[in-house]
Amino acid sequence: MNKVINLLLIIGFTGVLLYASMDLPYRGSPDNPMNQPESMTGTTVAGHYYVEKAYKDAHTPNMVTVVLGDYRSMDTLGEQTVIFAAGIIGFLILRRRKKNKEDS
C-alpha cells in the first residue's frame, strides 16, 4: 500500500514538472527573458549586467570568477562556511567514535 502511494507520488511529481516545462522558454534562444538586457519590470537583468561590467570592474577576463569573488562575495563566504561546518560536523561526530572504541 505504501509503495503504491509512493509510486503515485513520483508519477504525479513527474507529471506536474512535465506540464510546467511546456511553458518554459526555448532553451538557448536569444529571445529568452534571461538573455534580454532589461527584465519585464524594467530593471537590468543580472546576467547581462555581469557580462557587460565584469571586465571593467575587476580587470579579470573570467566573468564567473568575478561574480563568485566580487559581486556575490558575501554569498561565497556563506558557502565556504557551510563547507567548513560540514567538515567540523564530521570531525566532531566521528572522532568521538574512535575514543569510545578505545575506552570499551
Binding site: N35, P37, H48, Y50, A54, P61, R72
Partner: peptide, 28 residues
Amino acid sequence: KWNASVPIKVKGSHVSEAANFMNPLPQT
C-alpha cells in the same frame, strides 16, 4: 545561449556585445 561562447573575455571579443557570452550567473 546559441551562438555564444563561455563567459570568458578573450582577446578580440568585446564585452559590450552581451549576446556573445553565456549567462555567468547560473554557472556560478
